[in-house]
Design a binder for these strands. Structure first.
Lengths: 346, 346
DNA sequence: AGTTAGCACTCGACAAGGGTGAGTGCTAAC
DNA sequence: GTTAGCACTCACCCTTGTCGAGTGCTAACT
């Protein structure tokens, strides 16, 4: 593929990203000075079409990029446009001003990203597997109820209300609480499985009913704590793009995205450390095969913690989205790290 | 307004609710045997139009109900159609099967209601003002961090992570924790305001930095705890109704509803104990003046705790929605009460 | 006096037809 | 290899005509 063909392809894709209209040879000749006439460009376009990189919606209309064309574009042509001046600063400000309360931070980050990108954004919360249990406490509310609280090493707090079948004294509650803490403190979340809990149950078998109520909720809380969640924002943004004017299409996509497992699947298993592009049918879900996605991971302590994704039409601004998501992911990782370093000088 | 006019009006509204098409005199004569010809109905319709209860989208089209017409309908004509057989059972089952973990319960309730109604539903979480603080505890994570936990009398748990500027020993933490608990236990949430916190700050002034970090987060948690939230579900349901085929209209409505304060306003201040109807412009927000809303309150300990709302097109099924929402609100109140009674036998 | 049948009229919805313009492919000349 | 020119295609828009549902009015009927 010679350089001129690349230029033509880049011009077509750039134009189509901006206008969402099939782009003709004259438009390119006029607006992207390649130094050749429209006729020449027509010849090049015929070649590009033969290669499967662009296509014609119908005879005698302009060309639009094919999915293969977009793939070639992100892999070889796109380059790194960077962010418009001021945008990087916006992101930085957001992170310096923001309280590092994890769930809130993530959901606000997601919101900022969707506002800036004008696409749908999603963030997977940190996988807690690998974390350890640092605190565990039972707080009495009344003789028949208590609150179970667990805290993991990265400071995530989970709680559950426990109903006891019989009244439980405060001192007894404290005993159980201390016994559990002694056993579990410092253990990894993944270790606290059914087997271990059963062991505990038999060890603390003085009052089975009570202990079992506690263990049940503990298991529930641990399980919940190990579970990633996906935060979704900017779903309404897609309504601004001309490819989503069909209400049925929109409905299909949006209801598809309400399934959290789908979102996890979309965010997970994207290879590579940097930004990653998944285009159209590569997403392998018919409902969103008119969409593309840019993903990136964020880290904590050098380990991948979760992913961030931007979902837009196949015609999305790949370069800009990549720059945005990369900046956000880096800043996010940094804030998490800072929090750990300055907050927890062990 | 004589009986026949009422019958005609009821027929028009019923038909329009089902079809979303302007309804003509012939349709009524044919499908709703009033025992008179279409000509007579035409005369009645002319009268109804003069009264402002129905209107014509354009000359020589059928009639559609006006907002005043809907108002008359819900006030006098509608009656109580009740639920289709099996629906009440569905709701009851949902509540018996469901774990009473408050926030989860409410969001699932909201979901069930939106699934059954096919409209947008919203639930305002319980107002905690009036509640009292029952538990308060500081759990150490490491010398520089602790988790603050507060529990209210109805079992709501809130937590905040605190960063200390200097290392704090476990025993000192316990002291502070106990001192605060002694001061605050049993006090109403509303009482814990800035003034009280300032008092505490000076009383516990041994290590101002530490105490202030704690009080700041306490204030934050209390504030959050006093704050109602609104859960929203079924936003995509409106896409099924023919009046919402215009993508711009949909966008306007949906983005309007992302503002939580708006939702609160919509749910609050509806008079009366039973179900309540707000029609079209009565909602006093231009963005949703093509919508109507049915609301109902749920209670705990005999006090109104929060509201539930169903938002649909003005052409919504008022009677059915009212029955649904009433059933759900009653069951929800009952579950909350049961939980209190069996869970907390003080 | 209220009800009904009949009739002329209105107006939106839909389909068919023609013009316009953007864009292509091909060919011949440069 | 590049360009200019030309015939051709096709979506889009506008106009026109037809159709049908529905109305209002009037005169006849009970």
């Amino acid at each position: 593929m010679d350089e001129r063909k690349q230029k033509v392809l880049r011009a077509i894709i750039t134009d189509y990203i901006n206008t969402a209209e099939p782009v003709g040879s004259r438009t390119i000749a006029k607006n992207y000075d390649l130094g050749v006439s429209s006729a020449t460009i027509r010849n090049e376009m015929a070649d590009l079409e033969e290669m499967g990189l662009i296509e014609q919606p119908h005879t005698s209309s302009g060309r639009i990029p094919s999915q293969k064309g977009y793939r070639y574009y992100v892999d070889f042509l796109m380059g790194d446009n960077g962010l418009v001046s001021g945008e990087k600063e916006m992101i930085d400000n957001f992170f310096t001003e923001h309280l590092p309360k994890l769930d809130r931070l993530l959901s606000d980050t997601c919101k900022v990203l969707s506002d800036m990108s004008h696409y749908i954004t999603m963030i997977m919360t940190p996988t807690k597997s690998g974390g350890t249990l640092e605190q565990l406490q039972l707080l009495p509310i009344n003789p028949f109820q208590a609150v179970l609280i667990i805290v993991t090493d990265i400071g995530l707090v989970h709680h559950r209300t426990i109903d006891f079948p019989v009244p439980v004294s405060q001192s007894r509650l404290k005993e159980i609480s201390n016994a559990l803490l002694a056993k579990l403190k410092g253990r990894s979340i993944d270790d606290v499985n059914t087997t271990l809990l059963r062991e505990l149950s038999s060890e603390l078998s003085k009052e089975v009913d009570i202990v079992n109520s506690v263990l049940e909720m503990l298991s529930d809380a641990i399980h919940d704590s190990g579970e990633e969640k996906v935060i979704l924002e900017g779903t309404l943004n897609i309504l601004n793009h001309p490819e989503f004017q069909d209400i049925d299409k929109v409905k299909e996509i949006l209801s598809f995205l309400t399934n959290e497992n789908i979102l996890k699947e979309l965010l997970q298993g994207r290879t590579g450390n940097g930004t990653n592009f998944v285009i159209g049918e590569e997403l392998s879900h018919g409902q969103i095969n008119q969409c593309s996605m840019v993903t990136c991971t964020y880290t904590f302590n050098g380990n991948t913690m979760g992913s961030i994704g931007i979902l837009g039409p196949t015609r999305m601004e790949y370069s800009r989205s990549a720059s945005l998501i990369k900046e956000v992911a880096e800043k996010l990782s940094q804030v998490l790290q800072d929090e750990k370093n300055t907050g927890g000088k062990k």
